[in-house]
């Protein structure tokens, strides 16, 4: 990534498989249902969509994985050489919000649900964007 300090293209290429998996497993699903919502979606709709995106991020024959669990697995597989990469930084920051507040989605929307939903939506969108940025950097390397 021109003008940004951090790991070079060699590190990115070496981590290609891990980045691809991260983008597919987390980036694709972490902000999928919420972005499909109509502009006039109710709070209940937004809450359900966030629950799908963050608590049922991957759902298949082998079970259900939360965004936090997918992140933990895929982030651990990334080479430490990528830690300084801005996209990885951004991903870590957004996932920290999701990990801290995501559990609230288990229950019904509370009095602060609107604010919390906004925060979680922003974090999910940010996590997805960070995954894409990492992938773009990989492609250009």
């Amino acid at each position: 990534m021109a003008g940004v300090s951090g790991p070079g293209s060699a590190e990115l290429r070496a981590a290609a498989d891990q980045i691809t998996d991260l983008v597919h497993d987390l980036g694709k699903y972490v902000h999928l249902s919420a972005r499909m919502l109509a502009p006039d979606a109710t709070l209940g709709d937004r809450w359900s969509a966030l629950r799908e995106d963050l608590l049922e991020t991957r759902r298949g024959p082998s079970g259900v994985q939360t965004a936090a669990a997918v992140y933990a697995e895929r982030r651990a597989a990334l080479p430490t050489a990528l830690n300084p990469h801005p996209a990885v930084h951004a991903l870590d920051a957004h996932m920290a919000v999701i990990i801290a507040e995501g559990d609230a989605l288990v229950g019904l929307p509370g009095p602060d649900a609107e604010v919390r939903a906004d925060r979680l939506t922003t974090a999910a969108r940010g996590a997805q964007a960070a995954c894409r940025a990492l992938q773009a950097a990989l492609r250009s390397s």
Binding site: S33, E56, R58
Partner: peptide, 13 residues
């Protein structure tokens, strides 16, 4: 797809 979410989403959307 090996995952369920796309189908669920398509049915809803």
């Amino acid at each position: 797809d090996d995952q369920d979410r796309t189908l669920t989403l398509c049915r809803r959307v």
